[in-house]
Amino acid sequence: MIQLMELTVNGERHDLAIEPRRTLVDVLRHDLGLTGTHVGCEHGICGACTVLVDGAPARACLIFAAQVEGAEIRTVESLSPEGELNDLQQCFSEHHGLQCGFCTPGMLMLAEGYLAEEPEPTTEEIREVVASNLCRCTGYQTIVEAIDDCASRRRAAFQEQLAGSRV
């Protein structure tokens, strides 16, 4: 009952021969060695396994890998491929939006996907999105602040770019 499949993760194509019952999160972690994505509940509530599927945040524990053949999957490893933290990761650090770091990759991918779709969210909207995932350490406030700050910085950078292009 082994199935051949091809997955595209962080822009890289992988050939796999696996049981179809393997969930995407297990395949990412244990077949592809991308252990940045974590497993927290395996029933879609905690969000530790959140990755982007074609740009949208999704629970990797509720998807069989076979289902997302042909999709573009992005994991936390894609945020800082060269080791330099991106602006979102930097904001999490500055606001102390992580303690043990276990929920963090899921929170980052949730925020990354959300901000790409909605670059101008209100703080309340961010809070509602953060409520998608569980964190047991922070009390959430600093996670919301980090994402809010990142959104502001991205907007400011965009404005600056616009102003620059007008000159």
Binding site: R29, L34, T35, G36, T37, H38, V39, T75, V76, E77, L79, S80, G83, L85, Q89, F92, S93, L98, C100, G101, F102, T104, P105, L108
Partner: peptide, 10 residues
Amino acid sequence: LLAGRGRFVD
């Protein structure tokens, strides 16, 4: 931890 490069038991 932010880069997904922590090392947890699993």
